[in-house]
Amino acid sequence: MNHIIPKVDSEQLFTKVRKLLLDMLETGAFANTEKLPSEENLAKSLGVSRSVLRDVLAIFEAEGYITRKRGIGTLVNRHIINAVTRLDIEKEFMELINDAGYTPKIAFVNVEKQRAASDIAQGLAIDEGQEIIAVERLVLADNMPAILCTDHIASSLVLVREYSNDELFKPIFYFLEKYCNEEVVHNLTKVEPVLAKSRISSLFNIEEGVPLFYMSEVGYNIYNRPVLLSKEYHNPKILSYSILRKKF
Rank of each mutant, 00 (worst) to 15 (best):
Met1Tyr: 15
Met1Trp: 11
His3Gly: 13
Ser10Tyr: 15
Ser10Gln: 15
Phe14Leu: 04
Arg18Asp: 00
Leu20Thr: 00
Thr27Cys: 08
Thr27Trp: 00
Asn32Lys: 05
Thr33Leu: 11
Glu34Ile: 15
Pro37Leu: 03
Ser38Ala: 04
Lys44Thr: 03
Ser45Trp: 01
Val48Ile: 04
Ser49Glu: 14
Ser49Val: 03
Leu53Ala: 01
Arg54Cys: 13
Val56Leu: 00
Tyr65Asp: 00
Ile66Val: 03
Ile66Leu: 12
Arg68Asn: 11
Lys69Asn: 12
Leu75His: 06
Val76Ala: 08
Asn77Ile: 03
Arg78Gln: 07
Ala83Phe: 04
Glu90Trp: 04
Glu92Asn: 06
Leu96Gln: 05
Asn98Tyr: 08
Gly101Arg: 14
Gly101Met: 11
Gly101Asn: 10
Tyr102Gln: 07
Thr103Arg: 12
Thr103Pro: 09
Ile106Leu: 07
Ala107Asp: 11
Ala107Met: 05
Phe108Trp: 03
Gln114Thr: 04
Gln114Pro: 02
Ala116Val: 01
Ala117Pro: 10
Asp119Thr: 07
Asp119Met: 08
Gln122Gly: 10
Leu124Gly: 03
Ile126Trp: 09
Gln130His: 11
Gln130Ala: 10
Ile133Gln: 11
Ala134Lys: 05
Ala134Tyr: 02
Val139Lys: 02
Ala146Arg: 04
Ile147Thr: 06
Leu148Gln: 01
Cys149Val: 08
Ile153Asp: 07
Ile153Cys: 06
Ala154Asn: 10
Ala154Pro: 12
Ser155Gly: 04
Ser156Gly: 05
Leu157Ser: 00
Val158Phe: 02
Val160Gln: 11
Asn165Tyr: 06
Asp166Val: 05
Phe169Ile: 04
Phe169Cys: 07
Ile172Val: 08
Ile172Met: 12
Ile172Cys: 08
Phe175Tyr: 02
Glu182Ile: 01
Val184Ala: 06
His186Cys: 10
Leu188Asn: 10
Thr189Asp: 13
Val191Ile: 15
Lys197Ser: 15
Ser198Thr: 14
Arg199Glu: 15
Leu203Gln: 05
Phe204His: 02
Glu207Asp: 13
Glu207Tyr: 14
Glu208Gly: 12
Val210Trp: 13
Val210Met: 15
Val210Cys: 15
Pro211Asn: 12
Leu212Val: 06
Phe213Met: 15
Ser216Glu: 05
Ser216Gln: 11
Gly219Trp: 02
Asn221Gly: 06
Ile222Glu: 14
Arg225Glu: 14
Pro226Cys: 05
Pro226Tyr: 08
Ser230Thr: 03
Tyr233Cys: 04
Asn235Val: 09
Pro236Gln: 13
Ser242Ile: 02
Lys246Ser: 11
Phe248Pro: 03
